[in-house]
């Protein structure tokens, strides 16, 4: 009797010790993982800064082109943000509509299938989208859409100039980027829409709201901050997207507002991909410096997305 009590006490003591030991290992592992991310990020930033710095301060006469760094990177920044915004303008409304369809309209089986398909879209490498864009979408648009836009909508600056016959335009690139970022915005929107408390939906329905009125009154306001942060994540993805743009866009040097011509500002990532193989010396430093600029832009967008999400969720809690 006494023996067994002592044994069980010892047993529990040992158990407690291993439990604490396991805790310590796990805490160490997760802490290590967190630190590793910080170190990697800092390492990337440090590398970009160290290798890019000579490219920023270089004397223009030393390079083949005679641009200062600001003159060089300006059109690229413009092209990067412009392409990403076009993609966002196309993808966000579509993603919200698809998410609402999945969360509130589709029968359960259809919704699940559609959800899988959308997630699958995210698994396709963007280079495949790029090839699809240049082989299928670009000729299609160049034959059927751009001439019409050029003839009938040229009073809008976006559609001015001579329409591209190859279809390798900013609009084509933006559309393909939209397909690339559609899954992430849809997935996040779908999740926040599904989280709308049943109580709020019923409150709206009991006031005599139709389904669409209920969605506008209860679902969208509740999910708005989540949708915005999802869109921001999509924007971040579009800013950094490389291969799809590099394959499709026909780039020129300068700022171009028209999105249906062969003259387009390149994006930073695509410019690096195209120029890096044939660069040497200070040119490489300059490309890395543009990478640093992209890093800062993406960082800013993600920080903004986090702030929007944080502000929104605390508001929706109450």
């Amino acid at each position: 009797m006494t023996q067994s009590t002592i044994e069980s006490a010892q047993g529990s003591g040992v158990e407690g010790r291993t439990g604490r030991f396991g805790d310590r290992i796990f805490a160490g592992l997760s802490k290590g993982a967190g630190v590793l991310i910080l170190v990697t990020l800092a390492g990337v930033a440090l590398f970009l800064f160290r290798e890019g710095y000579p490219g920023i301060n270089v004397d223009p006469s030393e390079m083949d082109g005679s641009d200062t760094f600001i003159q060089y990177v300006g059109p690229l920044v413009f092209g990067t943000i412009f392409a990403a915004l076009i993609a966002l303008a196309i993808a966000a409304p579509l993603a919200i509509a698809v998410a609402l369809f999945i969360s509130h309209y589709a029968p359960r089986r259809v919704a699940r299938t559609l959800g899988y398909l959308i997630d699958l879209l995210a698994a396709i490498p963007s280079v495949v989208f790029g090839i699809w864009g240049i082989r299928v979408l670009a000729p299609l648009l160049a034959q059927n859409v751009y001439p019409w836009l050029g003839d009938n909508a040229s009073f809008i600056p976006l559609f001015s100039g001579s329409a591209s016959t190859s279809g390798r335009t900013m609009l084509t690139a933006g559309m393909v980027l939209a397909v690339v970022i559609l899954p992430i915005i849809t997935a996040i929107s779908r999740e926040v829409f599904l989280q709308t408390p049943r109580l709020h939906e019923e409150a709206s329905l009991a006031l005599g709201a139709t389904k669409w009125e209920m969605i506008r009154q209860a679902v969208i306001p509740y999910g708005r901050s989540g949708v915005i942060s999802g869109a921001m994540l999509g924007l971040g993805r579009a800013l950094g997207e490389t291969m799809a743009v590099a394959i499709i866009l026909s780039p020129s040097d300068g700022y171009f507002w028209s999105i249906i011509t062969n003259q387009n500002s390149n994006t930073i990532a695509s410019n690096i991909a195209l120029k890096f193989p044939e660069s040497s010396g200070l040119e490489v430093n300059r490309l890395i410096a543009t990478g640093l600029v992209l890093f800062v832009i993406t960082f800013g967008v993600n920080a903004l997305a986090r702030r929007v999400a944080a502000a929104g969720f605390s508001g929706a809690d109450g």
Partner: peptide, 18 residues
């Protein structure tokens, strides 16, 4: 239309949070 004529109050208070 019926729900506009016959209102409802629920078990837990559910004002729209936004």
């Amino acid at each position: 239309i019926i729900r506009r004529k016959i209102g409802m109050v629920f078990q837990r208070p559910n004002p729209f949070p936004t």
